[in-house]
Design a protein around this nucleic acid. Structure first.
Lengths: 341, 341
DNA sequence: TCGGCATCTCAAAGCGCTTTGGATAATTGC
DNA sequence: GCAATTATCCAAAGCGCTTTGAGATGCCGA
């Protein structure tokens, strides 16, 4: 059933039917009722393609997830972010388009999205330190929001980000205040912007407490469980092992804990652990009492905010770029305690 | 730059340019070259909407992920599946549309997808035991592939699935053959089809070895780490604790291991663990030597296969529904050993 | 009675593409 | 040399919708 047929059915013109359906004022209330009734009865839904051709609006948002060509791995937080964003899109009548782009083909991918007119805006995931995408998108002139930030925090583009620097600074200070002086950081890959910010916060806190940054207590890798395990096992096996460890994700923290316990040590007594917790649906940090002391910020919430921001940008581009920073909670769990002496 | 402008630029008609671009024979090779050159020079890309309006093909696939209204959680395997599918779509020039549908609004959601003509086919995720979606989609007549199956294994629709029954049967037999007689199953939610099949395999193996299914050794919950921990801790605290535990996912297995080790027991000696491993990118089961003995099947690969199947279905609907079953490997790791006596 | 003004409805153009059904020029067969 | 092909190209219709500009219709006051 399309507009033409529906109009014919009703003995009205396409114009009137279209207007009735889209809530324009210049149609009698009685006819609007008739039209609406017929539409629901015949289960009429306008053809998206035709509609967006006519209006010039795609009514769709593109999410572009980069996938590095060497270690093809999708970020696990992505699912939750999408879930949050999808809620907002659904309410606003937008569709969501997913594009997985190998990081060596970004240029063409983004240009083509803009050209082909298949989306009204884009959400960028996983910005790297030297990410060319922001400049690229500014050039092609498609509205976009970045989940995360680029190193240069200019106010020239829109983003939603956790205050990673502050979070890790606070976590480190907390550990230092508990008397820890040998604090290790198991960071994510530091060509990613968020990881670099975390490291900065870590270093700032160390120097605020007069502690030195020691490369032996520092790693930077993909945030897997085995990374947490192996890095921790390695560090604990050396002389002067760390008494506190900052992990970059809950998954990594599980590995850290395993290594700690493997060595016959007790988490929260012999070794303190703080992790960042993205509050993922399927991976909770304990029940009422969190297992891990953690800096926590919901990725799902970030998804909602980014989606709302982007829709706002599309509706009113003249208002200029927006930014939103999420402060992470520091929630105390059972994994931290005073430094052993 | 659109077709019209490009054609004007070249001094040709839109028809000729369109044909040159789409590889039709009735255009001179020399003009085709000219057209192609101009197109790349001006970075021309056809407007997706217009193209699909004209052709009647959306050149897009919809992925519908259900989200239960009570515990809003996205399946973690989803990301990897999508990653696999995206590869195939990209190669074939298809876009991927994501729709998150609350499970109380499925009816309208699917009908509207079909009506609005925004996708050429659909992939269904997470089929439940009494899933109404398959019947629904058959009714609306949109090509679809299910990742997983419905309880009734009719050959009336297309699906890609792991042989969950066989996998868990083999795993259970393996444990029984190692001398274990008290074997526990920490299953996923059993209103999901895959979980039920796993249970069937488990039960079949038990009875093949003359062992009884004991409710005290059986749980069915969302597959989180804390589920694994708590269920295991509880079971181990009772008289006659299980000596072997089947876990439904790697995440759950981590919880199982933690509970085992918390109790001062050794995995692989005091308690054997076998888990199902979806081979997710960010969550590896150890390095060269797997940590866990596991039934393994790549979700990413399933995504590729489902995508190819669906594209095939769209191109040639007359060939009828297809099915593909993936057999899971049973890989031996360090988490299993002979039953303690 | 008639112009003025809302109110309601419509025909037709247009969004950017594909595709049908010719037209024109070049080539072939006899 | 001329009709019949063949090789190239094009004008125009159509995909399903929105939207402009204008036409009816009814009602009012003068």
């Amino acid at each position: 059933m399309n507009l033409k047929q529906l109009a014919a059915n009703l003995g009205l013109s396409q114009t009137t039917v279209s207007r009735a359906l889209n809530g324009y004022p210049e149609v009698a209330e009685s006819t609007r009722k008739r039209v609406l009734a017929a539409a629901t009865q015949h289960n009429y839904r306008p053809n998206t393609r035709a509609k967006s051709l006519a209006t010039g609006r795609a009514m769709a948002i593109g999410h572009v997830i980069p996938i590095s060509t060497n270690h093809e791995m999708l970020n696990p937080v992505f699912g939750d972010f999408i879930g949050g964003a999808a809620e907002i899109y659904a309410r606003a009548g937008y569709d969501m388009m997913l594009t997985v782009v190998p990081d060596d083909a970004e240029d063409t991918a983004y240009r083509s999205m803009a050209q082909r007119n298949s989306v009204d805006g884009i959400v960028i995931h996983g910005p790297r330190r030297d990410d060319p995408r922001i400049a690229l998108l500014k050039e092609v002139g498609l509205p976009f929001v970045v989940h995360g930030r680029a190193p240069v925090d200019d106010h020239d583009y829109s983003w939603v980000d956790v205050n990673n620097r502050r979070a890790f600074e606070r976590a480190t200070l907390h550990l230092a205040d508990l008397g820890h002086s040998r604090i290790a950081l198991l960071n994510g890959l530091e060509h990613m912007d968020f990881a670099m910010r975390r490291r900065e916060g870590f270093e700032a806190a160390l120097s605020a407490r007069g502690l030195a940054f020691r490369p032996a207590y520092h790693r930077s890798e993909e945030m897997t469980e085995s990374y947490g395990y192996e890095a921790t096992a390695d560090m604990l096996a050396r002389p002067n092992p760390p008494t506190a460890i900052l992990a970059s994700s809950l998954i990594t923290a599980l590995g850290v804990r395993r290594a700690v316990e493997d060595r016959g040590l007790t988490m929260g007594r012999d070794v303190s652990i703080i992790t960042h917790d993205d509050d993922l649906g399927y991976f909770k940090n304990g029940g009422e009492v969190p297992v891990f002391t953690a800096t926590r910020s919901s990725v799902r919430e970030a998804g909602r905010i980014a989606a709302e921001m982007l829709l706002g940008l599309i509706d009113a581009p003249e208002t200029g770029p927006k930014q939103h920073i999420l402060e992470a909670d520091l929630t105390i769990g059972t994994s931290t305690g005073p430094a052993p002496r």
